[in-house]
Design a protein around this nucleic acid. Structure first.
Length: 444
RNA sequence: GUGGGUGUAGCUCAGUUGGUUAGAGCGCCUGACUGUGGCUCAGGAGGUCGCGGGUUCAAAUCCCGUCACUCACCCCA
């Protein structure tokens, strides 16, 4: 057999890293459910026309194909989902009659994108999504609540605080209309690069690629330069471009959202008029978050409002949602060794096996510990104690348990970190709360 | 898809102008340690030098091709 090798963009972790990932996923789920979001999982595949229809620019999609498929095979029209929003929209449209609106759900699943991997960029990765969809109208309060949820969920993870930039598509679209720009999507996409190529680069691109007049390009960059922690961005925009209905609507929405988030920790939310988002289906509020101190990782969470994504005849189903790039975040913190678990196995106690005759006693002790929620394993052979303790040590198991040679004698338990060994009763001994499960800690 | 870098032991890497049986550290196994790990010491296992072809008396080393990984562009979590 050929030497097994990693596949680029398909991350696989060691158990101690997977424990960190599971911790993150569990934390997010608990946080999502504490806000009343319902759980949901959708299938891995969607019809290709569905995946391609939702305004994606040119998302690289993995197509489903049976190895021995005939040319006219029916599955040919299926592809793996590249996000969780599009499948969610389909699910809502499909189950509309059975859902209660406004419908709020969390969804954590893997998604696949056929792009070239790079730092923070994978072909298979976890996204953790929150969305709410309503019938006919969706209150603007939800736009603010989504931002709040995103900030609070991210703060529950063992990573630095997030800086969430918020903008409103209507602001940019209204402003661009006022400036007489025809290619709004193209302009949006270039302005979105402000952080990456800088003002000079964006100016050049706007003039050369989008064909804007230099003073119009200047105005676009000036708008994109606006960052405010409060609602003062509105006056800044109005000073740059003449008003119109769309612009006013966008500024009003963004003002209300920013004002509603004023109580969040300073710096966690900022009106950032450079945020455009590549996805075409966003129609109002858009979000983009970065981790403080890890801005070079790019966007780690994002989302926005979509008024027309959930189609399917009849009434409108507007929604707003956000997505956390779990794998992008953990890829940095695990890959650079910034986070680790305190051990590589769930085991809290290793029951040593002094002899084959002691098996029943060892098993009984293990069962007594497990019955009280203490993860316990029994060593697999009656080997030297040194070997058995080394087994525990290698895995970071904190406690070794010694059944007595003489049934009338007490059991003993040893803390492998301190070396302290004391008599203990398997029916009542309890480890310190911190040792019960592997914990996630900063490395070094 | 375009361009750059890299491929030697499980991991991180040495390997001088091509020259005998390809090395180190870490990790792993055994023992010193006749039932208590970590430290130390002594042994040991483990490599078709990514793959294919070429040049040469001789290739890990030079040339060509190919694959993989990786970085940047594109786009994005």
């Amino acid at each position: 057999m050929a030497k097994p090798t990693p596949i680029s963009g398909f991350p696989e972790w060691l158990p101690e890293q997977r424990l960190v990932e599971l911790h993150a996923l569990d934390t997010l789920r608990a946080r999502f459910e504490s806000f009343g979001f319902a759980p949901l999982e959708t299938r891995a595949v969607e019809p290709l026309d569905q995946l391609l229809a939702k305004g994606e620019t040119d998302q690289e999609i993995y197509v489903l194909r049976r190895l021995h498929a005939a040319d006219d095979e029916g599955d040919a029209g299926l592809g793996l989902h590249f996000d969780l929003t599009v499948p969610f929209a389909r699910y809502v449209a499909q189950n509309r009659g059975r859902l209660a609106f406004p419908f709020k759900r969390w969804q954590i699943q893997k998604v696949w994108r056929g792009e070239r991997p790079q730092v923070g960029r994978y072909r298979e990765f976890y996204q953790a999504d929150l969305d709410v969809v309503a019938e006919e109208t969706l209150a603007l309060d939800f736009d603010a609540e989504m931002a709040r949820l995103l900030v609070e969920s991210m703060s529950a993870l063992p990573v630095p605080p997030v800086t969430l930039g918020i903008n409103n598509r209507k602001v940019l679209q209204g402003a661009y209309a006022a400036l007489g720009i025809d290619d709004v999507p193209g302009t949006l996409r270039i302005v979105d690069k402000l952080d990456k190529v800088g003002e000079r680069g964006v100016l050049d691109l706007l003039v050369e690629r989008a064909g804007l007049a230099p003073q119009v390009a200047e105005a676009c960059v000036a708008i994109g330069r606006i960052r405010t922690a409060d609602a003062s961005f509105a006056d800044a925009v109005r000073a740059l471009v003449p008003a119109n209905a769309l612009l006013d609507a966008g500024l009003d929405e963004l003002t209300r959202v920013i004002d509603a988030l004023a109580d969040l920790p300073a710096g966690s939310v900022v009106a950032n008029l450079s945020i455009a988002r590549g996805l075409d289906y966003y129609t109002g509020t858009v979000y983009e978050g970065q981790l403080r101190g890890h801005e070079n990782l790019g966007t780690v969470c994002s989302g926005g409002r979509y008024d027309d994504l959930v189609g399917g005849g009849g009434a409108k189903l507007p929604g707003v949602g956000v997505s956390i790039g779990v794998t992008r975040i953990l890829g940095r913190f695990l890959g650079d060794g910034l986070l680790r678990a305190t051990r590589s196995v769930p085991t809290c106690v290793l029951v040593t096996l002094p002899s084959d005759e002691a098996r029943p006693a060892a098993r009984a002790a293990a069962n007594a510990l497990r019955a009280r929620g203490i993860a316990t394993e029994v060593f697999h052979e009656a080997a030297r104690f040194g070997k058995q303790m080394k087994y525990a040590d290698r895995r970071g198991i904190p406690f070794a348990w010694f059944p007595p040679a003489d049934p009338s004698a007490p059991h003993e338990v040893k803390d492998l970190r301190t070396g302290a060994q004391t008599p203990a009763d398997p029916a009542s001994w309890t480890p310190p709360a911190d040792d019960l499960r592997p914990r996630v800690v900063p490395a070094e």
